[in-house]
Design a protein around this nucleic acid. Sequence first.
DNA 1: TATTGTTATACTCTATAACTATA
DNA 2: TATAGTTATAGAGTATAACAATA
Lengths: 165, 165
Amino acid sequence: MTIMPAHSHLEDAAADTGAAVDIGPLSGLIGYALRRAQLAVLGDLGRCFAEQDIRPTQFAALVVLARNPGLRAGQVALALGMRRANFVPLLDGLEARGLAERGRAKDDRRASALFLTEAGAAMLARLEPLLAGHEAKFAARLGPDGRCQLMGLLHRIGDAAFDPG
Amino acid sequence: MTIMPAHSHLEDAAADTGAAVDIGPLSGLIGYALRRAQLAVLGDLGRCFAEQDIRPTQFAALVVLARNPGLRAGQVALALGMRRANFVPLLDGLEARGLAERGRAKDDRRASALFLTEAGAAMLARLEPLLAGHEAKFAARLGPDGRCQLMGLLHRIGDAAFDPG
DNA sequence: TATTGTTATACTCTATAACTATA
DNA sequence: TATAGTTATAGAGTATAACAATA
């Protein structure tokens, strides 16, 4: 893979006005392709959830709370791949809208015990068809086999532990 | 795909202290897998380029300038998928370090003509082996066939046009 | 009037350090 | 002393609006 242009002489440079831009080796990089794909998918999910005023990360937090009632805030943050400090305003927003609530753990009075409210569960129920539509959109582009292959390949990449502290 | 937990009764909630967190349907979502993979790859590229104090986006700009000498700023920004306004500080940083330079187009005195300096070309030459090492790391996890499959699948997702304006 | 580069600004996401109250 | 949640803050990334020079 060569990065430098075929003609390195700046004197014969053309403004390339109107012509397509040559991105060179970028198009062959895994990270570049990942970035483009992730922008497309995350942007679409954001638009699908916009009618409920829910961001993808908020949705992920609601799902984790639904599946793990009473979980500590730090555990949720870890599961979402974010710092404990950055989870605070996210949870503040969910609690202010009555979608989640903060309790206190019985055995450890420092720790919190987070729960989804009924409104939060209802929100998840409204998000479910929106999520299904979003997912189906991209599954259709990939085909059943393609989607399965992609998930396996992405897991091989992403399963390299990343510890946000 | 069901989002709600099997047991919705908050009364029998367990703190799950120590146990693995159940992320439910998130693990099956294309967007979630993409996010994890992209964090792993982009983070690794950032660490590989850290010794040269170059960020992935700066690298991409250098590559585009190398392959398209004399290109306008707005064209570079478009190729990088960012707004013209946000490209200004990025280019400022490259110019301040002597890696790129701003010229003026001959035919249109509003437009700029951007060039890589010799120092910029030397920087790209130093980055090339770092990039190769990074790319090989993930290619090894995927295998030749896996890497080829992944690139094709990611292009099928990311080729949905996104216009940053 | 429209466009190029630019400035200013704001909002999100992310990262670090330090505080509090518990343990 | 160590930990959980929190606060404050700073840095990137990204968004819009508007301005001066030029077309």
